[in-house]
């Protein structure tokens, strides 16, 4: 392969690997927006909590790092338990955030919930920067200094015709795609998904169908938050530094991805995430790498100016 082609493919791999992370986080924004018309600004911080949940779980499972004689199968199993555990913890966190912070304000002016979302975000970001409480069995909160996320699975690097690819890329892409396909199935092929789409269109009328609207909203938070946790683990394994503000940038960018795809649209969030990840990678690679973080916000401005409904935005149809 020519060098230029190798380079292109390399950027494609990198872009996809970041893009799937954005996509998984963007799904949480878009689903919550779908059912509540609320931008859950705490979502990036739920993602951060997901990384810490994985960090603590890995530590509990194998104190002090890799257990002696830890085989590949054992490592995989542990990675699975850590990921599923972090997803469960974040699912519960998402449930609690909705139940305690947003639900009491439902029916109030939209701005109230928005400000509350920012409040929850600060609570998580600064709460996690506190020094550990003595009564906790684990050193929680973690405090402000960065931590190293454990290597759940030993890294293996391969070179495919000059394109370097690691097992992290492969696992990350596979898991992210599986989760997205799974979600796509849930949203478009199950009774719960139909109910969720109905709530997103009109919660009052959804209630008239017998749909327990509050329960659907709760589960939407649980699902979105669990996906954010999965994204956090997938991201923290290959890029292992985590800190309490680590959800800020990915959260913002995933929000842009959701807007790009059309906020409220599940396929839109997936496509938006991938497009944004690729755009960042390619622009940084072929122009100035310092432009990387500016891409997302340029995209946001362009979308808002020229196509505010996003790529997959719903075109409202109303008939008399």
């Amino acid at each position: 392969m020519s060098d230029a082609l190798v380079e292109l493919l390399q950027h494609l791999v990198n872009g996809l690997s970041v893009g799937t992370i954005y996509a998984l986080i963007a799904l949480g924004y878009t689903m919550v927006y779908g059912v509540l018309k609320l931008i859950n600004f705490a979502h990036g911080d739920v993602y951060m909590v997901g990384a810490y949940a994985g960090f603590y779980l890995a530590d509990l499972l194998t104190p002090g790092g890799r257990a002696a004689g830890d085989g590949a199968a054992g490592a995989m199993l542990r990675a699975l338990v850590v990921t599923a555990g972090a997803m469960a913890i974040c699912g519960l966190l998402g449930y609690l955030i909705e139940r305690l912070a947003y639900r009491p304000l439902r029916g109030q002016a939209r701005i109230t919930s928005l400000i509350t979302a920012i409040g929850v975000s600060f609570l998580l970001e600064y709460g996690f920067q506190l020094q550990p409480w003595g009564f906790m069995p684990i050193p929680f909160p973690p405090g402000p200094s960065p931590r190293f996320f454990p290597e759940l699975v030993r890294r293996a690097d391969w070179s495919l015709g000059g394109v370097s690819i690691s097992n992290y890329d492969v696992i990350g892409l596979a898991v992210a795609l599986a989760l997205m396909l799974g979600l796509q199935f849930v949203v478009f092929r199950t009774r719960f998904g139909t109910a969720m789409r109905a709530v997103s269109f009109d919660p009052q009328v959804a209630g008239l169908m017998g749909i327990p609207v509050n329960r659907i909203i709760s589960w939407t938070f649980v699902l979105g938050s669990a996906l954010a946790a999965a994204a956090a683990i997938l991201n923290a394994v290959p890029r292992p530094q985590i800190n309490p503000l680590f959800g800020l940038m990915p959260g913002l960018k995933a929000f842009v991805a959701a807007v790009l795809g059309g906020i409220g649209s599940v396929p839109g969030a997936m496509v938006g995430g991938l497009v944004l990840g690729l755009a960042e990678e390619f622009v940084a690679a072929y122009t100035l790498s310092s432009l990387k973080d500016a891409i997302a916000f340029t995209v946001l401005i362009l979308v808002l100016l020229f196509r505010p409904e996003g790529l997959f935005g719903r075109v409202t149809v109303e008939k008399v």
Partner: peptide, 9 residues
């Protein structure tokens, strides 16, 4: 009133 059809479904 207004039929309340889920136009997206």
């Amino acid at each position: 009133e207004g039929r309340g059809i889920f136009l997206n479904l």
